[in-house]
Design a protein around this nucleic acid. Sequence first.
DNA 1: AAAATATGTCAACAATGCTGACATATTTTT
DNA 2: AAAAATATGTCAGCATTGTTGACATATTTT
Lengths: 161, 161
Amino acid sequence: MSTHDQKIVELIELLFFAYRDFVSDPDEILRGYGFGRAHHRIIHFVGRNPGIRVAELLDILRITKQSLGRVLKDLVESGHVVQREGDSDRRHRLLYLTAKGEDLRERLMQPQIERFASALDASGGDASSVYRDVLLNLVNEKDRAEVENRISRARRPVVVD
Amino acid sequence: MSTHDQKIVELIELLFFAYRDFVSDPDEILRGYGFGRAHHRIIHFVGRNPGIRVAELLDILRITKQSLGRVLKDLVESGHVVQREGDSDRRHRLLYLTAKGEDLRERLMQPQIERFASALDASGGDASSVYRDVLLNLVNEKDRAEVENRISRARRPVVVD
DNA sequence: AAAATATGTCAACAATGCTGACATATTTTT
DNA sequence: AAAAATATGTCAGCATTGTTGACATATTTT
């Protein structure tokens, strides 16, 4: 194994450690609600994509309808998410966060924002853009354009009650 | 929310997408063995830390003894991992990969190395070191020194049969 | 009218976390 | 030497979140 590969192995391992700690803060908050990581993902992506369709959410999360359904049901029942009939196509169920859902989304995100802010700060310069490039290029080539588009799309400030 | 925070939210989301795709290659390989992600983690960290103690592995993975035990048993039975009595302390069970285990470790790692190599390449310059810094700084402050030490520790080329 | 699509639901199962209790062997402390 | 602490293993049971496959309903497209 080359020196170059050795360095990469260190990055692979670091990604594990970083991810491990990165999700630990929200995990702890979620416990207080009786929710898990799956709930977090839904809250996050619905919040960032108001009016998202179920099929889109499935494509982002790469899980099955059944897995999503179970967890989504919890969130609708707890009043964090609402479903609306599609306008152009009434088969669609468009998903939105309620004010309560949006509050939770922000609460879960807060420690992650702080963690990233410190990490970028400690890493100096324009670490942010380099780091962003690498992450984006780790995504499957075929999904890269879509992901880039999705993350940078300005969020419409829609909260439904 | 500030522009700065907006940028960070994009990174948070990207981390999800990158991780999602990053683990997908090994996941597919593992299916062929009837193994899962938990098996991969053990194979990886035992391979990188030959002679590691059970307690250390638990600390890295942050799971319980029971969760580890179940999966570790599979790997011992399949002949990928062996346990040896500790030399200085005979209560210890030191873990090693067999040649078969080492082969699998490398096979699982290969697509991840390639993915990283392309991503770093596409991100130009010394993306590697910046990226590394950010990841390391995402790790909990109290664990950072230990993680840094662990990942950069040259692996003793020990394979036991 | 028929076919395709979007969503929901049921039942069963698998992987991988968890808690709590307890057993054994070994080492450390008293 | 006896007692306490430590490292590991194991049992039983349970929770979360993933899976497959089948089928139901409403709606849109052909």
